[in-house]
């Protein structure tokens, strides 16, 4: 579904952020990307739907090349859902309108169809009664659940999560993870940048460990947690699992 091959990205010749990254996410697979901050994991996931440009290599989604100038990027992006660290709901739009905007403007759905779809998804993430509120009136966890619903409203073929729980207060993390776990169990193709190793253990098929712009380890979940091959991954794991 998502093919990443030999991707290099740099801001200047001396400032390389991604080096020769190659991996893939198969249909229905859940891949967790972890690593210390500044390791390039957020950059990599943003390259997948071309939110960040990269200089070398190829990325394709469902056989369509992201870095081909002929690709209709808005159309491609509309088929890939993305959830951000800071939610990025549109503050001037009501919750339901946040869900409808792209359905109507990008997919060309009729307003009532978009609303019906939006309400179904809000019900699914447990926030139906908040449809008429504005984002600032919701808690962080609620906002992130709305953001997931907003991405799902586009009927995505895959979902990208960029540290979806890092900006949340601890007591709100589980409500967001629960939604993500359900999604994974339903067979959604997911690429998730996160430090939540509990989530990885529960639903991930594979875990990718990144450090200093490189993919250091790319292993099946049990292998990764059982016996990581690299020192760096071991150190990282011992640090975040020790608490």
């Amino acid at each position: 579904m998502i093919e990443i091959s030999h991707v290099d990205k740099w801001y200047s010749p001396t400032f390389q952020v991604l080096t020769d990254c190659t991996t893939s996410v198969a249909k229905g697979e859940v891949v967790v990307v972890c690593g210390p901050s500044g390791s390039g994991k957020s950059t990599l996931i943003k390259c997948v739907n071309a939110l960040e440009p990269f200089q070398k290599g190829d990325i394709s989604i469902d056989g369509i090349k992201v870095n081909d100038p002929k690709t209709d990027l808005p159309k491609l992006r509309s088929r890939v859902g993305m959830v951000f660290q800071h939610f990025e709901l549109f503050p001037h739009l009501k919750i339901i309108d946040n869900l409808c905007l792209a359905q109507e403007k990008v997919l060309g759905r009729a307003h009532d169809k978009a609303v019906t779809k939006g309400m179904q998804l809000l019900e699914r993430v447990g926030l139906k009664e908040h449809a008429q509120k504005f984002p600032a009136q919701l808690s962080g966890g609620q906002q992130q659940r709305v953001a997931i619903a907003r991405a799902l409203a586009m009927d995505p073929i895959a979902m990208l999560f960029d540290e979806p729980t890092s900006a949340l207060d601890p007591e709100m993390i589980s409500e967001v993870l629960d939604v993500m776990v359900d999604l994974a169990r339903e067979g959604m193709t997911m690429m998730v940048v996160t430090h939540e190793m509990g989530f990885a253990r529960k639903v991930a098929n594979r875990v990718i460990f990144m450090d200093r712009g490189e993919i250091v380890e790319d292993a099946a979940k049990d292998d990764f947690f059982g016996k990581p091959r690299s020192d760096r991954a071991q150190k990282f794991l011992s640090k975040i699992l020790s608490h």
Binding site: K75, L76, S78, V106
Partner: peptide, 13 residues
């Protein structure tokens, strides 16, 4: 926030 433009772009706008 820079993410607003990104979120709009990511939705296909």
């Amino acid at each position: 926030p820079r993410g607003q433009k990104m979120a709009a772009t990511a939705l296909g706008l």
